[in-house]
Design a protein around this nucleic acid. Structure first.
Length: 411
RNA sequence: GCCGGGGUAGGGUAGCGGUUAUCCUGUAGCCCUGUGGAGGCUACGAUUCGAGUUCGAUUCUCGAUCCCGGCCCCA
Protein backbone atom coordinates (compact mmCIF):
# COMPACT_ATOMS: atom_id res chain seq x y z
CA UNK A 1 0.00 0.00 0.00
CA UNK A 2 1.51 3.23 -1.16
CA UNK A 3 0.65 6.59 0.29
CA UNK A 4 0.76 9.33 -2.29
CA UNK A 5 1.65 12.89 -1.46
CA UNK A 6 -1.21 15.34 -1.00
CA UNK A 7 -2.50 17.01 -4.10
CA UNK A 8 -0.64 20.10 -5.18
CA UNK A 9 2.41 19.34 -3.04
CA UNK A 10 5.80 18.27 -4.29
CA UNK A 11 8.71 16.15 -3.19
CA UNK A 12 12.03 17.76 -3.90
CA UNK A 13 14.67 15.19 -4.73
CA UNK A 14 18.31 15.80 -3.80
CA UNK A 15 19.10 17.38 -7.19
CA UNK A 16 16.02 19.62 -7.01
CA UNK A 17 16.71 20.65 -3.46
CA UNK A 18 20.30 21.46 -4.22
CA UNK A 19 19.28 23.81 -7.00
CA UNK A 20 16.52 25.41 -4.94
CA UNK A 21 18.88 26.08 -2.06
CA UNK A 22 21.45 27.49 -4.41
CA UNK A 23 19.03 29.93 -6.04
CA UNK A 24 17.66 30.81 -2.62
CA UNK A 25 21.16 31.62 -1.36
CA UNK A 26 21.73 34.02 -4.25
CA UNK A 27 18.43 35.83 -3.61
CA UNK A 28 19.22 36.05 0.10
CA UNK A 29 22.58 37.58 -0.64
CA UNK A 30 20.99 40.25 -2.81
CA UNK A 31 18.35 41.32 -0.26
CA UNK A 32 20.94 41.36 2.49
CA UNK A 33 23.15 43.62 0.43
CA UNK A 34 20.20 45.97 0.06
CA UNK A 35 19.97 46.12 3.83
CA UNK A 36 16.93 43.96 4.52
CA UNK A 37 16.59 41.70 7.56
CA UNK A 38 14.92 38.33 7.61
CA UNK A 39 11.92 37.54 9.78
CA UNK A 40 9.93 34.37 10.41
CA UNK A 41 6.22 34.27 11.21
CA UNK A 42 4.03 31.28 12.17
CA UNK A 43 3.04 28.74 9.55
CA UNK A 44 -0.58 29.10 10.68
CA UNK A 45 -2.48 32.11 11.88
CA UNK A 46 -5.93 33.00 13.11
CA UNK A 47 -8.30 32.86 10.17
CA UNK A 48 -9.46 36.38 10.90
CA UNK A 49 -6.11 37.85 9.92
CA UNK A 50 -6.78 36.99 6.31
CA UNK A 51 -10.51 37.57 6.16
CA UNK A 52 -9.85 41.03 7.57
CA UNK A 53 -7.42 41.74 4.77
CA UNK A 54 -9.06 40.03 1.82
CA UNK A 55 -12.70 39.49 2.78
CA UNK A 56 -14.73 36.42 3.70
CA UNK A 57 -14.57 35.28 0.11
CA UNK A 58 -11.03 33.97 0.40
CA UNK A 59 -11.94 31.29 2.92
CA UNK A 60 -12.75 29.01 0.01
CA UNK A 61 -9.15 29.25 -1.11
CA UNK A 62 -7.61 28.64 2.29
CA UNK A 63 -6.35 25.59 4.09
CA UNK A 64 -8.33 26.46 7.19
CA UNK A 65 -9.27 24.28 10.14
CA UNK A 66 -10.53 24.37 13.68
CA UNK A 67 -7.94 23.47 16.30
CA UNK A 68 -8.69 21.40 19.40
CA UNK A 69 -9.58 24.53 21.32
CA UNK A 70 -12.23 25.24 18.68
CA UNK A 71 -10.30 28.21 17.27
CA UNK A 72 -10.62 29.09 13.59
CA UNK A 73 -7.14 28.77 12.11
CA UNK A 74 -5.58 28.67 8.67
CA UNK A 75 -2.27 27.83 7.09
CA UNK A 76 -0.92 31.14 5.79
CA UNK A 77 -1.82 31.85 2.15
CA UNK A 78 0.64 34.75 1.92
CA UNK A 79 2.93 36.72 4.17
CA UNK A 80 2.09 40.39 3.89
CA UNK A 81 -0.73 40.15 6.43
CA UNK A 82 1.36 38.16 8.96
CA UNK A 83 4.22 40.63 8.63
CA UNK A 84 1.85 43.55 9.20
CA UNK A 85 0.40 41.77 12.22
CA UNK A 86 3.89 41.22 13.55
CA UNK A 87 4.73 44.87 13.01
CA UNK A 88 1.65 46.07 14.86
CA UNK A 89 2.18 43.61 17.72
CA UNK A 90 5.88 43.99 18.24
CA UNK A 91 7.72 46.43 16.03
CA UNK A 92 5.97 49.79 16.15
CA UNK A 93 8.78 51.32 18.18
CA UNK A 94 11.50 50.28 15.74
CA UNK A 95 13.43 52.83 13.75
CA UNK A 96 11.83 53.46 10.40
CA UNK A 97 11.98 52.55 7.67
CA UNK A 98 11.86 48.87 8.55
CA UNK A 99 13.38 46.73 5.87
CA UNK A 100 12.15 43.17 6.21
CA UNK A 101 12.24 40.07 4.09
CA UNK A 102 11.01 36.50 4.33
CA UNK A 103 11.28 33.26 2.46
CA UNK A 104 8.57 30.84 3.49
CA UNK A 105 6.07 28.32 2.26
CA UNK A 106 2.43 29.31 1.81
CA UNK A 107 -0.72 27.28 1.27
CA UNK A 108 -3.72 27.83 -0.91
CA UNK A 109 -6.53 25.40 -1.61
CA UNK A 110 -6.60 25.80 -5.37
CA UNK A 111 -6.60 23.61 -8.40
CA UNK A 112 -2.99 22.88 -9.33
CA UNK A 113 -1.73 23.82 -12.76
CA UNK A 114 1.51 24.98 -14.31
CA UNK A 115 3.28 27.28 -11.86
CA UNK A 116 0.54 26.84 -9.27
CA UNK A 117 0.66 24.49 -6.32
CA UNK A 118 -1.12 24.08 -3.02
CA UNK A 119 2.11 24.46 -1.16
CA UNK A 120 4.40 27.05 -2.69
CA UNK A 121 7.22 29.32 -1.64
CA UNK A 122 7.25 33.09 -1.56
CA UNK A 123 10.27 35.28 -1.28
CA UNK A 124 9.01 38.66 -0.16
CA UNK A 125 10.13 42.07 0.94
CA UNK A 126 8.24 44.66 3.00
CA UNK A 127 9.49 48.19 3.46
CA UNK A 128 7.59 49.88 6.27
CA UNK A 129 7.48 53.54 7.17
CA UNK A 130 8.16 55.54 4.05
CA UNK A 131 5.55 56.85 1.66
CA UNK A 132 8.10 58.41 -0.63
CA UNK A 133 8.72 57.38 -4.21
CA UNK A 134 12.25 56.54 -3.08
CA UNK A 135 10.93 53.57 -1.11
CA UNK A 136 8.81 52.31 -4.01
CA UNK A 137 11.72 52.73 -6.38
CA UNK A 138 14.04 50.80 -4.07
CA UNK A 139 11.53 47.96 -3.83
CA UNK A 140 11.09 47.78 -7.59
CA UNK A 141 14.80 48.03 -8.28
CA UNK A 142 15.46 45.30 -5.73
CA UNK A 143 12.86 42.97 -7.25
CA UNK A 144 14.38 43.59 -10.63
CA UNK A 145 17.90 42.99 -9.33
CA UNK A 146 16.87 39.75 -7.62
CA UNK A 147 15.50 38.31 -10.84
CA UNK A 148 18.55 39.46 -12.72
CA UNK A 149 20.83 37.82 -10.17
CA UNK A 150 19.39 34.41 -10.96
CA UNK A 151 19.47 34.95 -14.69
CA UNK A 152 15.81 35.73 -15.32
CA UNK A 153 14.77 38.40 -17.73
CA UNK A 154 11.49 39.79 -16.50
CA UNK A 155 9.07 42.18 -18.14
CA UNK A 156 8.32 44.88 -15.57
CA UNK A 157 5.11 46.92 -15.71
CA UNK A 158 4.51 49.86 -13.39
CA UNK A 159 1.62 52.13 -12.61
CA UNK A 160 0.42 54.61 -10.03
CA UNK A 161 -3.14 53.97 -8.94
CA UNK A 162 -3.44 57.52 -7.69
CA UNK A 163 -4.02 58.68 -11.24
CA UNK A 164 -7.00 56.47 -11.93
CA UNK A 165 -8.30 57.03 -8.39
CA UNK A 166 -8.17 60.78 -8.95
CA UNK A 167 -10.21 60.36 -12.08
CA UNK A 168 -12.79 58.25 -10.25
CA UNK A 169 -12.92 60.40 -7.13
CA UNK A 170 -16.25 61.95 -8.10
CA UNK A 171 -17.92 58.52 -7.92
CA UNK A 172 -19.13 56.63 -4.86
CA UNK A 173 -16.43 54.66 -3.03
CA UNK A 174 -18.11 51.32 -3.73
CA UNK A 175 -18.36 52.09 -7.41
CA UNK A 176 -14.70 53.04 -7.46
CA UNK A 177 -13.72 49.69 -5.96
CA UNK A 178 -15.84 47.81 -8.41
CA UNK A 179 -14.31 49.68 -11.33
CA UNK A 180 -10.79 48.96 -10.04
CA UNK A 181 -11.59 45.25 -9.94
CA UNK A 182 -12.94 45.29 -13.48
CA UNK A 183 -9.88 47.14 -14.73
CA UNK A 184 -7.64 44.64 -12.94
CA UNK A 185 -9.39 41.78 -14.69
CA UNK A 186 -9.18 43.57 -18.02
CA UNK A 187 -12.91 42.92 -18.37
CA UNK A 188 -13.68 45.64 -20.92
CA UNK A 189 -17.27 44.68 -21.62
CA UNK A 190 -18.01 44.33 -17.91
CA UNK A 191 -16.48 47.74 -17.35
CA UNK A 192 -18.52 49.35 -20.10
CA UNK A 193 -21.72 47.78 -18.81
CA UNK A 194 -21.01 48.93 -15.30
CA UNK A 195 -20.24 52.48 -16.34
CA UNK A 196 -23.53 52.41 -18.21
CA UNK A 197 -25.37 51.07 -15.14
CA UNK A 198 -24.15 53.74 -12.77
CA UNK A 199 -24.70 56.37 -15.41
CA UNK A 200 -21.14 57.68 -15.24
CA UNK A 201 -20.49 61.05 -16.88
CA UNK A 202 -19.57 60.66 -20.54
CA UNK A 203 -16.43 62.72 -20.07
CA UNK A 204 -15.18 60.50 -17.24
CA UNK A 205 -16.04 57.36 -19.12
CA UNK A 206 -14.08 58.41 -22.15
CA UNK A 207 -11.06 59.47 -20.11
CA UNK A 208 -11.08 56.28 -18.08
CA UNK A 209 -11.21 54.00 -21.08
CA UNK A 210 -8.42 55.96 -22.70
CA UNK A 211 -6.30 56.03 -19.54
CA UNK A 212 -6.30 52.30 -18.89
CA UNK A 213 -5.04 51.66 -22.39
CA UNK A 214 -2.09 53.99 -21.98
CA UNK A 215 1.15 52.11 -22.00
CA UNK A 216 4.78 52.57 -22.92
CA UNK A 217 6.62 55.73 -23.89
CA UNK A 218 4.74 58.97 -23.77
CA UNK A 219 2.05 57.46 -21.57
CA UNK A 220 2.75 59.93 -18.77
CA UNK A 221 2.42 62.89 -21.07
CA UNK A 222 -0.89 61.62 -22.41
CA UNK A 223 -2.13 60.86 -18.91
CA UNK A 224 -1.28 64.40 -17.91
CA UNK A 225 -3.39 65.65 -20.80
CA UNK A 226 -6.28 63.49 -19.61
CA UNK A 227 -6.31 64.21 -15.87
CA UNK A 228 -4.36 67.43 -15.58
CA UNK A 229 -1.20 68.16 -13.64
CA UNK A 230 -2.15 66.38 -10.43
CA UNK A 231 0.32 65.51 -7.62
CA UNK A 232 -0.07 61.76 -8.31
CA UNK A 233 1.39 62.22 -11.76
CA UNK A 234 4.31 64.15 -10.32
CA UNK A 235 4.98 61.34 -7.81
CA UNK A 236 4.80 58.80 -10.58
CA UNK A 237 7.23 60.80 -12.67
CA UNK A 238 9.57 60.98 -9.70
CA UNK A 239 9.43 57.18 -9.36
CA UNK A 240 10.21 56.73 -13.04
CA UNK A 241 13.18 59.07 -12.82
CA UNK A 242 14.50 57.05 -9.90
CA UNK A 243 14.03 53.80 -11.81
CA UNK A 244 15.95 55.29 -14.72
CA UNK A 245 18.74 56.15 -12.30
CA UNK A 246 18.76 52.62 -10.93
CA UNK A 247 19.06 51.43 -14.51
CA UNK A 248 15.83 49.47 -14.31
CA UNK A 249 13.95 48.81 -17.52
CA UNK A 250 10.20 49.14 -17.27
CA UNK A 251 6.98 49.62 -19.18
CA UNK A 252 4.47 52.18 -17.98
CA UNK A 253 1.04 50.59 -17.91
CA UNK A 254 -1.95 52.52 -16.64
CA UNK A 255 -4.03 49.37 -17.02
CA UNK A 256 -2.50 47.55 -14.02
CA UNK A 257 -4.94 47.96 -11.19
CA UNK A 258 -4.81 45.20 -8.55
CA UNK A 259 -8.30 44.56 -7.33
CA UNK A 260 -7.85 45.43 -3.68
CA UNK A 261 -8.55 48.69 -1.95
CA UNK A 262 -5.47 48.79 0.24
CA UNK A 263 -3.07 49.52 -2.60
CA UNK A 264 -2.41 53.22 -2.40
CA UNK A 265 -0.22 54.36 -5.27
CA UNK A 266 2.59 52.54 -6.95
CA UNK A 267 1.84 49.06 -8.23
CA UNK A 268 3.98 46.79 -10.37
CA UNK A 269 4.06 43.33 -11.84
CA UNK A 270 6.85 41.34 -13.46
CA UNK A 271 6.24 38.62 -16.01
CA UNK A 272 8.59 35.97 -17.33
CA UNK A 273 8.41 33.81 -20.42
CA UNK A 274 8.06 30.05 -20.41
CA UNK A 275 5.47 29.76 -17.68
CA UNK A 276 2.24 29.28 -19.60
CA UNK A 277 -0.81 30.98 -18.15
CA UNK A 278 0.82 31.74 -14.79
CA UNK A 279 3.54 34.00 -16.07
CA UNK A 280 3.66 36.53 -13.24
CA UNK A 281 6.77 35.99 -11.12
CA UNK A 282 6.50 39.11 -9.02
CA UNK A 283 3.83 41.54 -7.87
CA UNK A 284 3.80 44.39 -5.43
CA UNK A 285 3.27 48.02 -4.66
CA UNK A 286 2.64 50.50 -1.93
CA UNK A 287 -0.20 49.72 0.44
CA UNK A 288 -1.94 50.72 3.61
CA UNK A 289 -2.76 47.77 5.86
CA UNK A 290 -1.39 48.60 9.27
CA UNK A 291 -4.45 50.53 10.39
CA UNK A 292 -6.61 47.58 9.49
CA UNK A 293 -4.70 45.48 12.02
CA UNK A 294 -4.90 48.06 14.76
CA UNK A 295 -1.74 50.07 14.16
CA UNK A 296 -1.11 53.65 13.16
CA UNK A 297 -1.24 55.32 9.81
CA UNK A 298 2.00 53.83 8.50
CA UNK A 299 2.67 53.56 4.79
CA UNK A 300 4.39 50.49 3.39
CA UNK A 301 5.59 49.10 0.15
CA UNK A 302 6.56 45.57 -0.74
CA UNK A 303 6.49 42.72 -3.17
CA UNK A 304 6.39 38.97 -3.37
CA UNK A 305 8.37 36.75 -5.70
CA UNK A 306 6.92 33.40 -6.74
CA UNK A 307 9.91 31.22 -5.96
CA UNK A 308 8.50 28.12 -7.67
CA UNK A 309 7.94 30.01 -10.88
CA UNK A 310 11.43 31.38 -10.67
CA UNK A 311 12.75 27.84 -10.33
CA UNK A 312 10.73 26.86 -13.37
CA UNK A 313 12.55 29.28 -15.64
CA UNK A 314 15.88 29.61 -13.86
CA UNK A 315 18.70 27.90 -15.68
CA UNK A 316 21.44 28.28 -13.09
CA UNK A 317 23.34 25.19 -12.07
CA UNK A 318 24.38 24.66 -8.48
CA UNK A 319 28.13 24.24 -8.09
CA UNK A 320 29.41 20.73 -7.60
CA UNK A 321 30.06 19.35 -4.13
CA UNK A 322 33.23 17.55 -5.19
CA UNK A 323 32.79 14.60 -2.84
CA UNK A 324 35.74 12.47 -1.83
CA UNK A 325 35.22 8.75 -1.51
CA UNK A 326 37.31 6.65 0.81
CA UNK A 327 38.14 3.20 -0.40
CA UNK A 328 39.26 0.66 2.13
CA UNK A 329 39.71 -3.05 2.53
CA UNK A 330 37.80 -5.03 5.07
CA UNK A 331 40.94 -5.17 7.20
CA UNK A 332 41.34 -1.37 7.18
CA UNK A 333 37.75 -0.18 7.62
CA UNK A 334 38.45 1.24 11.07
CA UNK A 335 41.41 3.21 9.71
CA UNK A 336 39.08 4.49 7.01
CA UNK A 337 36.67 5.81 9.64
CA UNK A 338 39.52 7.66 11.35
CA UNK A 339 40.67 9.24 8.12
CA UNK A 340 37.10 10.16 7.16
CA UNK A 341 36.63 11.93 10.47
CA UNK A 342 39.68 14.09 9.83
CA UNK A 343 38.79 14.85 6.23
CA UNK A 344 35.21 15.76 7.11
CA UNK A 345 36.41 18.89 8.83
CA UNK A 346 37.23 20.17 5.35
CA UNK A 347 35.14 18.46 2.68
CA UNK A 348 32.25 16.09 2.01
CA UNK A 349 33.41 12.51 2.44
CA UNK A 350 31.81 9.18 1.59
CA UNK A 351 32.81 5.98 3.33
CA UNK A 352 31.88 2.47 2.26
CA UNK A 353 28.85 1.28 4.19
CA UNK A 354 27.98 -1.70 2.00
CA UNK A 355 31.00 -3.94 2.56
CA UNK A 356 31.72 -3.73 -1.13
CA UNK A 357 34.89 -5.23 -2.49
CA UNK A 358 37.72 -3.00 -3.60
CA UNK A 359 36.71 -2.89 -7.20
CA UNK A 360 33.08 -2.26 -6.49
CA UNK A 361 33.97 0.61 -4.17
CA UNK A 362 35.95 2.26 -6.91
CA UNK A 363 33.15 1.69 -9.35
CA UNK A 364 30.65 3.20 -6.94
CA UNK A 365 32.91 6.22 -6.46
CA UNK A 366 32.89 6.67 -10.19
CA UNK A 367 29.11 6.36 -10.37
CA UNK A 368 28.44 9.06 -7.80
CA UNK A 369 30.78 11.44 -9.59
CA UNK A 370 33.68 11.57 -7.14
CA UNK A 371 36.52 13.79 -8.29
CA UNK A 372 38.98 12.07 -5.99
CA UNK A 373 39.19 8.89 -3.96
CA UNK A 374 41.38 8.17 -0.98
CA UNK A 375 42.62 4.61 -0.79
CA UNK A 376 43.46 3.10 2.56
CA UNK A 377 44.77 -0.45 2.43
CA UNK A 378 47.35 -2.37 4.39
CA UNK A 379 50.22 -0.70 2.54
CA UNK A 380 48.93 2.77 3.36
CA UNK A 381 48.30 1.96 7.01
CA UNK A 382 51.80 0.54 7.20
CA UNK A 383 53.28 3.75 5.74
CA UNK A 384 50.93 5.96 7.85
CA UNK A 385 49.83 7.65 4.64
CA UNK A 386 46.96 7.36 2.17
CA UNK A 387 46.77 7.09 -1.59
CA UNK A 388 45.01 9.99 -3.31
CA UNK A 389 43.66 9.16 -6.72
CA UNK A 390 42.41 11.70 -9.22
CA UNK A 391 39.44 10.05 -10.90
CA UNK A 392 39.59 11.97 -14.14
CA UNK A 393 43.32 11.57 -14.82
CA UNK A 394 43.76 8.28 -13.00
CA UNK A 395 46.90 9.58 -11.39
CA UNK A 396 47.61 8.68 -7.79
CA UNK A 397 50.18 9.45 -5.15
CA UNK A 398 51.02 8.47 -1.61
CA UNK A 399 50.43 11.40 0.77
CA UNK A 400 49.87 12.20 4.43
CA UNK A 401 46.33 13.24 5.42
CA UNK A 402 47.44 16.84 5.86
CA UNK A 403 48.85 16.84 2.37
CA UNK A 404 45.57 15.49 1.03
CA UNK A 405 43.63 18.24 2.79
CA UNK A 406 46.02 20.86 1.50
CA UNK A 407 45.80 19.56 -2.02
CA UNK A 408 42.02 19.27 -2.17
CA UNK A 409 41.07 22.47 -0.39
CA UNK A 410 43.28 24.84 -2.34
CA UNK A 411 41.58 23.93 -5.60
C1' G B 1 -16.29 25.02 -9.15
C1' C B 2 -15.75 24.13 -14.81
C1' C B 3 -13.32 22.14 -19.63
C1' G B 4 -9.65 19.04 -22.30
C1' G B 5 -5.47 15.19 -22.32
C1' G B 6 -3.30 11.38 -19.52
C1' G B 7 -1.87 7.18 -15.52
C1' U B 8 1.94 -0.14 -17.23
C1' A B 9 8.55 -1.79 -12.28
C1' G B 10 12.38 3.86 -9.08
C1' G B 11 12.68 6.61 -14.27
C1' G B 12 11.41 5.97 -19.69
C1' U B 13 8.33 2.56 -22.63
C1' A B 14 5.72 -1.86 -25.80
C1' G B 15 1.23 -4.55 -25.77
C1' C B 16 -4.90 -2.24 -27.04
C1' G B 17 -9.93 -8.69 -25.20
C1' G B 18 -6.52 -14.65 -23.88
C1' U B 19 1.29 -13.10 -23.54
C1' U B 20 5.34 -16.28 -18.51
C1' A B 21 3.07 -8.33 -19.64
C1' U B 22 8.05 -6.18 -23.90
C1' C B 23 12.43 -3.53 -24.11
C1' C B 24 15.81 0.39 -22.25
C1' U B 25 17.57 2.41 -17.84
C1' G B 26 18.18 1.82 -12.56
C1' U B 27 19.50 -0.78 -8.01
C1' A B 28 22.05 -5.15 -5.72
C1' G B 29 25.34 -9.16 -6.72
C1' C B 30 28.68 -12.32 -9.65
C1' C B 31 32.34 -13.06 -13.71
C1' C B 32 36.89 -9.93 -11.13
C1' U B 33 38.31 -9.69 -2.72
C1' G B 34 44.60 -3.50 -4.56
C1' U B 35 42.41 -0.12 -9.06
C1' G B 36 36.68 2.69 -11.85
C1' G B 37 34.13 4.05 -16.58
C1' A B 38 33.09 -1.33 -21.32
C1' G B 39 30.92 -6.23 -21.71
C1' G B 40 28.36 -10.81 -20.10
C1' C B 41 25.26 -13.27 -16.51
C1' U B 42 21.77 -13.37 -12.19
C1' A B 43 18.36 -11.15 -8.92
C1' C B 44 14.78 -7.07 -7.66
C1' G B 45 10.72 -4.49 -9.48
C1' A B 46 4.67 -2.49 -12.69
C1' U B 47 -0.86 -2.74 -15.28
C1' U B 48 -3.64 3.98 -9.98
C1' C B 49 -8.16 2.34 -7.18
C1' G B 50 -13.35 0.50 -7.30
C1' A B 51 -17.52 -1.23 -9.89
C1' G B 52 -19.57 -3.13 -14.57
C1' U B 53 -19.53 -5.87 -19.51
C1' U B 54 -17.20 -10.74 -20.74
C1' C B 55 -15.89 -17.64 -20.26
C1' G B 56 -11.68 -14.25 -19.75
C1' A B 57 -10.02 -7.04 -18.86
C1' U B 58 -3.60 -3.95 -18.85
C1' U B 59 -6.94 -3.59 -23.14
C1' C B 60 -14.01 -1.96 -23.46
C1' U B 61 -17.76 1.12 -20.15
C1' C B 62 -18.75 3.99 -15.71
C1' G B 63 -17.12 6.24 -11.15
C1' A B 64 -13.20 7.85 -7.95
C1' U B 65 -8.25 9.50 -7.53
C1' C B 66 -3.77 11.67 -8.98
C1' C B 67 -0.81 14.08 -12.86
C1' C B 68 -0.47 17.59 -17.15
C1' G B 69 -2.61 21.92 -19.70
C1' G B 70 -6.49 25.67 -19.75
C1' C B 71 -10.91 28.57 -17.45
C1' C B 72 -12.30 30.90 -12.78
C1' C B 73 -9.40 33.03 -9.05
C1' C B 74 -4.81 35.11 -8.01
C1' A B 75 -4.39 38.19 -1.50
Amino acid sequence: MKISKPRGTRDFLPEDTKKRRYVESILRQVVKNWGFNEIITPTFENLELFTLKSGEGIVGELYNFKDKGDREMTLRPELTAPVMRMYVNEMQAYQQPLKLFYFENCFRYERPQKGRFREFWQFGVELIGSKRADADAEAIALASEMLKSVGIKGDLHVNNLGVIRHLLSVLETEHQSKIMRLVDKKDDTGLNDFLEDINAPADLRMKLLELICLTGEGAVTKARELVGNIPEIETFQELLTLLDTYGVEYTINFGIARGLDYYTGTVFEIYAEGLGAQNQVCGGGSYQLIQLFGGGDVPSTGFGLGFDRIMEVCELEAPDDKPVVIIAKDSTRLDAVKVATKLRLHMPVYNDLMKRNFKAQLSHANNIGARHVVIIGEQEVEAEKVTLKDMSSGEQELLTIDEVIEKLTCK
